[in-house]
Simulated assay, not measured.
Amino acid sequence: MLKTSLGRFRAVALLEGLSFVILLFVAMPLKHLAGMPLAVRVVGLAHGLLFVLFLFTLMEVAIAYRWSFARVAGAFVSSLLPFGTFVLDARLRREESQAAVQPAP
């Protein structure tokens, strides 16, 4: 999975999405309901770093695969929505499997 730019992008996107979900549904409630602000600091830092890495790998895959602006914008928006990167990964995986089945012209 990590051998291609698309594989690296999918891996980073999954980690970024997971960190976002943990930030929203674990760390934020811990901060506001249990008075544990350190959870947001730690998870927020990790999520921020993964988000920047997501943007870099998005640029890499967009250039390598010549993605359209709309496709790049859609991938970016998926990172802003909870569970969005999981949906993006499912679409990319489906496209990869369809491309592998279709014969080359």
Rank of each mutant, 00 (worst) to 15 (best):
L81W: 06
L30H: 03
P37C: 04
M28D: 07
Q102V: 13
G74H: 07
F69K: 13
V21N: 07
G7V: 00
A70N: 10
V12D: 06
E60L: 14
L14V: 15
V26M: 10
L92T: 05
L45H: 08
L50V: 07
G35E: 05
G74M: 12
L33D: 12
H32I: 03
A104C: 09
I63M: 10
A11N: 04
H32Y: 15
A62F: 01
H32D: 13
F20G: 04
F51M: 07
Q102P: 00
F83K: 03
V26N: 00
Q102H: 06
Q102E: 13
F69G: 13
L2Y: 10
I22W: 02
R66G: 02
L49T: 05
V52Q: 00
P37A: 05
A39F: 14
S19M: 08
A73K: 09
F51Q: 07
L49D: 03
L88R: 05
A75H: 09
P103G: 01
L55T: 02
P103Q: 03
M36F: 15
G17R: 06
F9Y: 13
R10F: 06
R71A: 11
H47Q: 07
S5D: 12
E96M: 09
R41H: 14
V43G: 02
Y65C: 12
R8P: 03
F9D: 01
R8E: 04
L53M: 12
K3Q: 11
V61Q: 11
M36N: 11
L58F: 04
R10A: 10
A13C: 12
R41M: 12
P37L: 04
S78D: 10
T57F: 05
E60N: 15
